[in-house]
Nucleic acid binder design. Structure first.
Length: 542
RNA sequence: GGUCCGUUCGUCUAACGGUUAGGACGCCAGGUUUUCAUCCUGGUAAUAGGGGUUCGAUUCCCCUACGGACUACCA
């Protein structure tokens, strides 16, 4: 019955798109549908550590979707697990997204009409909904201790079975379903630890509509009686998530695929709470996978494979371990975002370079792929190279200027600016700017052995003296003029182009690398060039 | 193990029943060049396997294989 198409998802219409005409009609319906809810989406990380790039991508897709539909995007912190709380993680998440250019309309850091946006600050709100479920008989108290359950699991495992707290087992356990009413009351009053579990129906097909995967249905007897309310007085993710999404009027839940298996439970909770009519639409994003081997991308992959998995550098507060970040490694946020956006989504054209504005304009959930993407560090570098070389010289100068400052080098702005056009095509990451230009700011301390062997000949000093004389008498130090002068000299004296240029290059930069010789001389200027020639003759000798 | 989700060049992906299966990264070759890069041109390389449905399947269905996620009083 159900036809997977964007129009169906967005309008709730059941229709089959067969030709262009119908697509247009449906689109018009979409535009003028008065029942269309305001788009409100959220990014809801838990502060258990640094956000990795998969998380950033989830936030990005939410952001793009919100902007595209003139909706709202909010940041909610899901910190219902006190044991896993990591100090600094929340700030890290906020700073990471800010650096990435992903901005919120509401959230824990900026407030908003549905504040508070941190679940630990909303603790009291969840209890009443747990009670509501209790009263309607769709949830029940359970008194089994963690140890008892652990023992049961082990026991089942030894028989090669899996223990599930659910329809098959709950009547054998210590809960409000098996205990008498007075016993339950007594236990509650005695302060006995308890949890509240959802009472999963025995045989019911639960259907989840997913914007990316279509219809996903599962039989409820495979679900278990998940804990909704923990003995520490905190809700679990499942309850808190559903309650908050409802209260915050979330229209679309766009989250990682790891949530797909529990989506039926969430649908059930919306139903039991009487909110099914306002249930958000779901879109479960495919995961980001390791570049090599199998499995989803994890923290350790980055350092093992030599690329960052985090947007920003992170120091573990407990172990002191440092994990590298895209920002500190020298990526531009625009390149980082462009690269991430294309991991699991594409605009349907062959355009690959996309600004945030273009991404917003072009983004659409139904162009999100179904399968996981292996992350490719090489392509990330390529994106950065592209963005770096497209930057105006003034921007490059700012980046290089900062590096110089950090190194304690006090260079004139004019010098920095004249270096930029020579190096920006040669860098992949920001630190490469220095690798490609250091010799403009400091004299080579040594000469590359291979280059010396190849280009330093007995007659080199004499040759260089001649060139020095030539330069000494010149006023015009523009690149073209220098180029003509040197080439003329080579030609007039019947010399080899490579031999002369490379020798010159050797004495100027200390090896076989760098931009054109004339360009180097032009930037260094007469005094410094002559100085380096003299120094080389002195050091390398005859 | 069970459940769910997935499977097009090495990688990211396009092709919504009819294409010489397209693009990008990488790699290789050639060109430009005074070096190293950049850049330009070209090349390499894919529909997991098997059954259906159909005049025709990358595309729809089934099975197998493989991969992934989930299976906590974690999110």
């Amino acid at each position: 019955m159900y036809q997977k198409s964007k129009q169906v998802h967005q309008t709730g219409l059941f229709a089959q798109v067969r030709d262009g005409t119908q697509v247009v009609l449906l689109s018009l319906h979409f535009l003028f549908n008065p029942d269309m809810k305001e788009v409100r989406v959220r990014f809801a990380p838990s502060p258990t550590g640094p956000l990795h790039i998969g998380g950033v991508r989830t936030a990005l897709y939410n952001y793009l979707f919100a902007r595209k539909h003139n909706g709202k995007f909010l940041l909610r912190i899901e910190d219902t697990d006190q044991a896993r709380f990591v100090p600094g993680a929340e700030d890290y998440i906020i700073e990471s997204l800010k650096w990435s250019g992903i901005h919120f309309d509401e959230g824990v850091h900026i407030g908003g009409p549905f504040a508070p946006y941190r679940q630990s600050d909303r603790k009291e709100m969840y209890h009443q909904y747990a009670l509501q479920l209790l009263n309607s008989g769709t949830a029940y108290y359970a008194f089994d201790t963690p140890d008892e359950l652990e023992a049961l699991r082990k026991d089942f495992e030894s028989r090669k079975e899996t223990f599930q707290y659910g329809p098959q087992t709950r009547m054998d356990l210590r809960n409000a379903l098996t205990l008498s009413e007075s016993d339950v009351e007594a236990l509650l009053e005695s302060g006995e630890h308890y949890v509240i579990r959802v009472k999963i129906p025995e045989h019911e097909t639960i259907v989840v509509h997913d914007l990316i995967r279509g219809v996903v249905s599962v039989n409820s007897h495979l679900l278990d009686d998940k804990v909704l309310y923990k003995s520490d007085g905190m809700p679990t993710y499942h309850l808190a998530n559903v309650v908050d999404d409802y209260l915050m009027k979330i229209s679309h839940v766009i989250r990682g695929e790891e949530w797909l298996p529990s989506a039926p439970l969430h649908v059930l909770l919306y139903r039991y709470l009487g909110w099914e009519a306002d249930m958000p639409e779901f879109a479960h994003l495919p995961l980001l996978l390791k570049p090599e081997g199998n499995g989803k991308l994890s923290k350790r992959d980055g350092d093992r494979l030599g690329f960052p998995v985090f947007p920003l550098q992170w120091t573990d507060p407990k172990t002191g371990d440092l994990s590298s970040g895209y920002r500190e490694s020298g990526y531009l946020p625009e390149a980082f975002i462009n690269m991430l956006a294309l991991l699991g989504w594409n605009p349907g054209t062959e355009q690959e370079i996309l600004s945030m504005d273009e991404l917003i304009e072009l983004f659409s959930i139904d162009r999100v792929g179904k399968s996981g993407s292996k992350f490719d560090p090489e392509k990330a570098k390529w994106f950065n190279h592209y963005y770096l070389s497209a930057l105006p010289d003034e921007k490059i100068a700012e980046l290089l200027g900062k590096i110089l400052k950090d190194k304690g080098i006090d260079a004139e702005k004019g010098l920095i600016l004249s270096v930029c056009p020579l190096i920006k095509d040669r860098a992949n990451l920001i630190p490469d700017l220095w690798e490609q230009s250091w010799f403009f700011f400091t004299q080579p301390g040594s000469y590359d052995e291979k280059a010396v062997q190849k280009f330093w000949k007995p007659d080199s000093p004499a040759l260089l003296k001649q060139i020095a004389g030539l330069l000494e008498s010149r006023e015009d130090f523009t690149v073209d003029a220098l180029d003509n002068a040197i080439k003329g000299f080579i030609h007039d004296n019947g010399l080899g182009m490579g031999q002369v240029m490379n020798t010159l290059r050797l004495v100027l930069v200390g090896g076989s690398f760098g931009p054109g010789v004339a360009a180097i001389i032009s930037v260094l200027g007469k005094k410094e060039t002559l100085n380096r020639i003299e120094k080389a003759i002195r050091n390398l000798g005859a």
